[in-house]
Design a protein around this nucleic acid. Structure first.
Lengths: 337, 337
DNA sequence: CTGAAAGCGCTAACAT
DNA sequence: ATGTTAGCGCTTTCAG
């Protein structure tokens, strides 16, 4: 059984009190150089590490922050996590990652587990399924610092980081139009997500400005965020088999973009006639065939900002009154044709 | 500031002792139904959650397991993590993920942080840079349960899960040979990794069986596991600019495979003359161009097995004497040509 | 059926 | 310079 050495063990072995050992270990200036040396050496010898659990209990904080995302396999989120980690580590915090797989139930479980004092604050990007926010609201009301990124809960009064989804979607759609496309479908994420509404607005606005009618049959939502490939496949195949099929598809997120391409490759006889543009942070996009024009979000930077904001709340002496919403620009990367 | 309700708060509010509240909360049969009901209702009302930190301290275990991987963006690892989570959750454990980014220093920091009682055991896949294992050995000697998966430390006496790297590499190389390739280069990971040696042996054995000479100039290692794209680029470009360039490349891991393709697309004038086969668990492989024949590891299953083994050690009443090494088969997926 | 008290590992007044 | 003690939140003997 794992029985790490404790301060008590050291104290006993060295015939000192636990407080002396504790102070020596953290280099308290009141301890004689000699005692310090003895303690330090002995601690090193027995591979002593102070128990972070005990420390957390005492200090009533854990110096760790929790991150709730749908899945780390999604490159947008893995990049965001790298950003989060980079600032967290530099400020002495550890990062605990938790995946919801876009399931509401899982989100609730994970949030509750992380919340009660095993983390000092939460960075959350909502699951595609989530429509009820009380698990988060309760905690927030109790004073748990929460910062949203990407998939935001607008109704909660806290810091938020997102990318300019409207503009990104607008530019992508306009790009497709500039390529001569007239019937542009929209493959969207779950309708309750903030990003879904924003991106759809950008898409519709581009069509409007170019006098292209909006056809509701060309807009399909994936209510589980494409958790199952089949969900995407069904939507895309409906587009393909439409009486008057689209000549382009604008896809609203990472997972859906690749799912869309796979489906097209599998089922579309002449899929090169259909242009696809979509949000994606995959590092492999440039190697894809069918090719994908993509909108890239500054994921790493978003992670950094979100972490900075969260830590600033955690470390603030006074309750924060004014909350900020940061919006970062996306970039469009045309491809193919 | 976040001040969650404690048992003490409830006790005070209800004019009971903390022990009664504690017992009522966990449904102790000695408590009267009435008291139980009052406590439960009040707890619900104030959103009481027991403090897992305090619990861990008391029980001297946290019901969570730590996972050390190079990076979650790598699909092999994200799939393995999904496998780990699936068994961990079903057995009541939480999973804490920690990324090394293939840095030795980061590995040490993460291992030490997780080890001392914030997790009950560790699932580790070594970083590409790691050559000194004392940070792990020390903890293992102290009794911390450790299970290795994928990138294994052979010298440590514990459970291990890997895929049949020798066979996977052998089959891939033989596949390239069957396609008529005569000069097959090998792009390998850091030389000290278990997987590197095993895969190289499979590669060399295939060449040997087919009477193809082994040319050491056609074997290149990426000692940081391809952490920087540039590392891969240099190696691949050396292959391409060789006097007698290869007609195929066998790539030893996920990240290197895609890096290799990118470089080829970027620099090789007629990259379609060079066949590439490599280990990859990316879900996008089928959409890649240049195409990649790939060896897929059963990542999810490996994660499951590893987690099961770890939990069995954690929950074992007696010290384990006999350790198992599980090896799972890979599958080859030919592509292109 | 309920309460008082000790203890998990650590720190920080408060002695000495 | 070092020791004693209380307490972080919770569970669990041991007493009533």
């Amino acid at each position: 059984m794992f029985k790490p050495t404790t301060i008590k063990d050291i104290a006993k072995a060295l015939n000192l009190s636990t407080s002396t050992v504790s102070r020596a270990l953290r280099g308290g200036y009141e301890i004689s150089e000699e005692t310090k040396k003895i303690v330090l050496e002995y601690a090193e010898k027995v591979n002593f590490k102070r128990n972070p659990i005990a420390l957390s209990l005492k200090e009533r904080r854990s110096y760790s922050i929790g991150v709730i995302v749908c899945e780390v396999a999604n490159q947008f989120f893995s990049q965001a996590i790298d950003g989060i980690e980079s600032v967290a580590y530099s400020k002495g915090y550890h990062v605990i990652i938790s995946q919801t797989h876009d399931s509401y139930e899982r989100e609730v479980i994970n949030v509750e587990h992380l919340a009660n004092r095993s983390v000092d604050g939460l960075l959350v990007s909502l699951s595609a399924e989530t429509k009820d926010y009380s698990h988060l609201e309760k905690l927030h009301d109790q004073g748990l610092p929460i910062v949203f990124f990407d998939r935001i809960l607008n109704s909660m009064n806290t810091h938020k980081v997102s990318s300019n989804n409207f503009k990104g979607a607008f530019e992508a759609t306009e790009f497709l139009i500039s390529k001569g496309c007239k019937r542009i479908a929209h493959l969207a994420n779950a309708s309750q997500l903030s990003i879904t509404a924003e991106r759809q607005k950008g898409y519709e606005e581009a069509l409007r400005q170019h006098h292209i009618p909006i056809d509701k049959e060309l807009i399909k939502y994936c209510k589980h965020g494409g958790r199952d490939q089949i969900e995407v496949e069904i939507a895309v195949r409906e587009f393909l088999s439409h009486d008057n099929p689209p000549d382009a598809i604008f896809v609203a997120s990472d997972r859906l973009s690749t799912g869309c391409l796979s489906t097209m490759k599998k089922y579309a006889t002449h899929h090169h006639d259909i242009l696809v543009a979509g949000f994606s942070n995959s590092e492999l996009v440039e190697l894809l065939n069918p090719s994908l024009s993509y909108i890239r979000q500054p994921a790493f930077e978003m992670g950094e900002k979100a972490a900075e904001m969260l830590i600033s709340i955690i470390e603030s002496k006074y309750p924060i009154e004014e909350f900020e919403s940061i919006m970062l620009d996306t970039t469009l990367h045309p491809n193919g044709v």
